[in-house]
């Protein structure tokens, strides 16, 4: 016999509902983890990637010896972690003699590995080594500009793949509205050769240009590093087709009381509810109101007197 299990608390329920598949996805969480051995360089690379993406990433600080993304059987632990943390991407660092300072970037589809991209890190310069004005420091979670430079990103298959992965990793949350005042960072990726990419993180300084568009100035604030492409694994065709499906013809939600007219344009109907003037509470009773009451009182008294007189007269007649 099956039994229903539902969360006891609303919070847990909401948390689970957040994890459900959505029609329109707004971004992936990134899982950052170490392999069985990592170098000092790689440790700081992973930490700084984590800090760049702090609002949407989960970092595991312990060793994960059983994770080997490219080997069969080595991905089970990774997929399990993805399910537990609800992450759609991962950055995995490992260091070995054969592949020093190895960084594996990959994505998940339905908590199964979708694609993999292995790069080696070279010429790493951490954030601390850059000197810049503290005012320019970008805010956590701000939407970055991303610039890809070089024809390699178009012509070389590995780099094309890397570009897509990097875009997915760096672009942050997919948003509808952006506050222009909050633009403060940019990533610059340059393909220096057919297997090498230079990546750096910059702050933006907006300078007056006399027009609406300010003049952009990039100030390198790090981290910066070189990626040397090693192994990579593209998604298989069926999976790719499945994963690329989007909501094409989403029926537009009908907006109530708004209609379009060819001549007049947008027409809105406004319904004003009954104002109920009689029921409105006045701030204080005006004197006039009081006088009225007084008058009414005196009037009543007169009437009563007259009535009593009449009664008396009647009684006397009887």
């Amino acid at each position: 016999m099956m039994k229903l299990k539902t969360p006891k608390k609303g919070k847990a329920r909401r948390e689970l509902e957040k994890r459900a598949p959505k029609l329109v996805e707004t971004g992936k969480k990134t899982l950052i983890l170490h392999g069985s051995k990592t170098s000092g360089v790689l440790n700081s690379v992973l930490t700084q990637i984590y800090h760049l993406k702090k609002e949407s990433s989960v970092r595991f600080s312990r060793k994960n010896g059983e994770v080997r993304p490219f080997e069969s059987g080595g991905e089970t632990a990774l997929e399990f972690f993805s399910q537990k943390t609800d992450c759609g991407m991962f950055v995995f660092g490992s260091h070995s003699k054969k592949r020093p300072d190895n960084l594996v970037l990959g994505r998940f589809y339905d908590h199964h590995i979708y694609d993999l991209m292995e790069v080696g890190v070279e010429n790493f310069k951490p954030v601390e080594s850059f000197k810049y004005d503290a005012k320019l420091a970008p805010k956590a979670g701000s939407k970055p500009f991303i610039a890809f430079i070089g024809e390699g990103f178009d012509s070389v298959e590995e780099l094309r793949h890397l570009k897509e992965v990097l875009l997915d990793l760096l672009r942050g949350e997919v948003i509808e509205n952006i506050n222009i005042a909050g633009i403060d960072r940019a990533y610059v990726c340059t393909a220096t050769s057919s297997n090498k990419v230079f990546l750096t993180h910059c702050a933006l300084r907006l300078k007056k240009s006399g027009t609406v568009v300010p003049r952009m100035e990039l100030i390198e604030i790090g981290p910066s590093m070189d990626f040397v492409v090693r192994r990579h694994r593209l998604p298989n065709e069926g999976l790719k087709k499945e994963a690329m499906r989007t909501l094409k013809d989403q029926a537009k939600k009908k907006v109530k009381n708004v209609s379009e007219d060819i001549i007049e344009g947008k027409i809105g109907k406004v319904y004003i509810p009954d104002q109920k003037v009689g029921e409105t509470a006045l701030p204080y009773k005006a004197k006039g109101v009081k006088r009225e009451r007084r008058e009414a009182k005196s009037k009543n008294a007169e009437e009563r007197e007259q009535a009593s007189k009449k009664q008396k007269e009647d009684s006397t007649i009887e």
């Binding site: 029609l23 759609g88 589809y109 339905d110 997915d168 509205n177 998604p235 499906r245």
Partner: peptide
């Protein structure tokens, strides 16, 4: 506030369509 157009570069979904 500026309204951004939807992204053009197609990236894979994280989970299947509901």
């Amino acid at each position: 506030l500026v309204r951004l157009p939807p992204p053009v570069t197609r990236l894979p979904r994280e989970k299947h369509m509901p």
